[in-house]
Design a protein around this nucleic acid. Sequence first.
DNA 1: TTGTAGGCGTTATCAG
DNA 2: CTGATAACGCCTACAA
Lengths: 334, 334
Amino acid sequence: MTDSRQPTLEEVARLAGVGRGTASRVVNGSEHVSPHTRDAVERAVRELGYVPNQAARALRTRRTDTVALVIAEDEERVFAEPFFAGLVRGISRAVDATSRRLVLSMVPDESHLDRLGQFLTPQHVDGVMVVSMHDALSLPESPDLPIVHVGRPRDAGACYVDVDNLGGARQAVDHIIGRGRQRIACITGPQDLASGRDRLEGYREALAAAGLPFEERLVEAGDFSDASGVRGTAALVERCPDLDAIFAANDVMALGAMRELARRGLRVPEDVAVVGFDGSPAAAASTPVLTTVHQPLAELGTTAVEVLAHRIDDPGAEVRSVVLPAELRAGESA
Amino acid sequence: MTDSRQPTLEEVARLAGVGRGTASRVVNGSEHVSPHTRDAVERAVRELGYVPNQAARALRTRRTDTVALVIAEDEERVFAEPFFAGLVRGISRAVDATSRRLVLSMVPDESHLDRLGQFLTPQHVDGVMVVSMHDALSLPESPDLPIVHVGRPRDAGACYVDVDNLGGARQAVDHIIGRGRQRIACITGPQDLASGRDRLEGYREALAAAGLPFEERLVEAGDFSDASGVRGTAALVERCPDLDAIFAANDVMALGAMRELARRGLRVPEDVAVVGFDGSPAAAASTPVLTTVHQPLAELGTTAVEVLAHRIDDPGAEVRSVVLPAELRAGESA
DNA sequence: TTGTAGGCGTTATCAG
DNA sequence: CTGATAACGCCTACAA
């Protein structure tokens, strides 16, 4: 009873009483086919459980209907950083809504770049999305292969989608200033990352715009990790006991900061207001007193997929990057 | 200068001054080719930067050199549960060492099963690894497609790799008994999961072997989440103030238990010993007083890949499942 | 050991 | 609107 072999287009055509070409047209949704014929073919397709042979199609069309998401990070961190969960979810969903498939590649270290380079060719994928936490790692780009970076890359000419890190950070700091805070500290993100740099810059700009001085002693270097949030807070509080607010470049650090403040008997937000730049909505939800700048990760993913699709379907088009606005979400305010 | 198109085997053959067939044999590492010719072809391959066209090869050989890892879980949980990080890492590494590629698919809900079913065919992949947290979800299996389950599935005849949940749990409880504890409580895992059931069974067996009674009131149902660890502990302590140990079916719950115990002024391990079944080595490391049964996730992944490769390369072979031993890691003891 | 040729399942072109 | 008919790039008998 089981034929074991998948049915071919030839068999569909035969069963429908049409030629192979016509069957192909129906399967590919061509306009130029009579309703009657279309119907017959579609019935045959269903009856036989026909599914197009991907290999044959790819061989013929030189398209793979596959896009890659390259995460230039070790699995460990990929799973640890809430940032990736949201992003992958968004991208995954968006690609699902497409006729394309998504393959996920993590690149733990440079030794894997060769293998990856062989894979990232028009022969295997139609396009690539790259999210890298380090500016450093540059992967072997195949010409003729559309690439969209998630997060602004070092290469200024490259196509990317990103959240408005600068504007978001400025909003965050504006907000605390508006609540009457004057001595606002900052725990930065890694400075080899555009997001890290931009969020620090936003902090500066907000201070400047309000006529507040930028003070080195109110700034601590962090790396987006919980530990660095704790460490930075400890250092800041010891150095400037009179600070009345902390802007952390992401929520993970902000939460670390809140724990450390609590440990020292300082109350949030009464004594010290805290605002973070959001990597995950969950963090904000779990601590209503935390005001955060919401980073729309899912939307970022969706956008990345859209932009990539656009570049794939219309190779001649101009390269357009997209920057999404970041949105302030005030918790119990300070 | 750039040819833009990838070179074909034909061109390699021409440059090497041999026939297409011979070039193919060299590329595929056939024995029957003279060292001289082989050398010429290899040089041509390098010079042209030839890389075999996957589609053409797949079309011809009916093999894809691709294996799928299906995680029957929402992205959210996949990234939240430390279990998956270790597993994916192990599998990823193991596949990398192969000539095959890995594609990762998460299945948030049943609505995605159709799409997945279309993908999980010999036409797209050579084999599949499935890790599911629920017994319920059964994916549409394509005949002729080797499947290896990670974690014992409901279907008893299926091929799987797993950790010795029962033995591990028994070891854990044995260990606390050996340290003189008498009233040992258990926070179980979800009972619709083999791992959950087996670990509870191990707990029973250890008690029985030691002549200790199994008491319902010493058992609380958990679901592997931190919250359920906290909740279960609270319930247990209130119900049985005299308990002197807790066995939690995973580390996440064990850590939750420890927090709850601390909150109630109970000391670990002086007042109450805690031992967990380990999803992630990190948990054990972060709390030296926690004794855990180590679940070798990376090795589990490696084994899954090996078993799958075996089944792919030797389709006639008997289906053999593998159960890995679990290893006790004693923290500062009770 | 090596070359030649047929065909894997599709799509695209080109007549009808 | 439809049906033949070439490729797409590769592997693998088969013949030399």
